[in-house]
């Protein structure tokens, strides 16, 4: 098999598979600005806010233009030492809301 053929291979379930979408939730008052979630986010959607919390730390927010990019991998959630960020599966929430009509 040549490399061009490999390039044109498509996953068998490409028509039905949906990339998970996540909604990011942030608890600003717990954040201590350690930067872990921002640096280790696999899709790089988090940045520091310009606002500060009560302790004076900049907390993460979703970058402008990447509102829809979260894939709900949950890495920021598990990695956060302060339990200050988590994500929810938006596809699952939407399906629940629509009574799973697909």
């Amino acid at each position: 098999m040549t490399s061009s053929e490999i390039r044109h291979r498509e996953p068998l379930d490409i028509a039905t598979a949906r990339v998970p979408r996540g909604q990011v939730y942030i608890i600003p008052e717990r954040c201590k600005g350690c930067d872990f979630c921002i640096v280790f986010c696999p899709v790089d959607i988090l940045v520091f806010s310009t606002d500060i919390n009560a302790k004076g730390y900049h907390f993460p927010i979703v970058a402008h233009g990447k509102e829809d990019a979260c894939t709900h991998c949950g890495f920021c959630d598990l990695l956060c030492p302060e339990l200050a960020i988590y994500t929810e599966d938006l596809n699952a929430l939407e399906q629940e809301a629509e009574g799973d009509t697909d």
Binding site: Q23, V24, I27, I61, E67, E94, Q95, E98, D102
Partner: peptide, 14 residues
Amino acid sequence: MTQTVLTGEKKTDT
């Protein structure tokens, strides 16, 4: 299926 339009992060306290 309608897709919810996201507006970035949501703030919460739990």
